[in-house]
């Protein structure tokens, strides 16, 4: 069952990663009207992503919380025995960043609320960029941890 939850956790994270990256680029580096792939990537209506991103972030956190005990009992024990302190610490940072991101979600909703307020453009870009960083960091750390024996095999 844990494996199923882990796979769903990963799939939800992929959806979240894609959406929040589009939205962050749209907020921080708006499209200039040209039709190349870089401009098209940024040319999304960011506000329409907000509720879905919040739902995916919460769902991903819940799923992570469900499989966390298995990691605590077996994964972390292995990391400590193998003295993989940097990997262990990377996950510790992940859990704290994810928690801080959870607390930011109401503010994230506020700054993307329609109609968009021009005076909140800076806060909108900063908040989305921070959440995007948290999601990318969590995704990469989670992936490395999931493959830690193969990658670091000690």
């Amino acid at each position: 069952m844990t494996t199923i939850f882990l796979i769903i956790h990963g799939l939800v994270a992929v959806a979240l990663l894609g959406g929040i990256t589009h939205q962050a680029f749209a907020a921080c580096w708006p499209a200039n009207g040209s039709e190349n792939i870089f401009s098209s990537f940024r040319a999304v209506r960011g506000a329409s992503y907000t509720n879905s991103m919040i739902a995916l972030y919460i769902l991903s956190t819940i799923l992570g919380g469900v499989i966390y005990p298995v990691y605590r009992l077996f994964g972390r024990t292995y990391l400590e025995a193998a003295q993989l302190w940097e990997i262990n610490g990377s996950f510790e940072i992940k859990e704290q960043f994810i928690a801080v991101g959870l607390g930011m979600l109401p503010f994230y909703w506020l700054v993307w609320r329609k109609p968009l307020e021009e005076k909140l453009a800076g806060a909108r870009a900063a908040t989305t960029a921070i959440l995007c960083f948290i999601v990318w960091y969590g995704f990469i750390v989670g992936h490395v941890l999931n493959n830690v024996r193969g990658v670091f095999g000690r």
Partner: peptide, 11 residues
């Protein structure tokens, strides 16, 4: 700005 700067500082 406290809505994003304080969480960023906490990170």
């Amino acid at each position: 700005w406290i809505g994003w700067a304080v969480p960023l500082a906490t990170m």
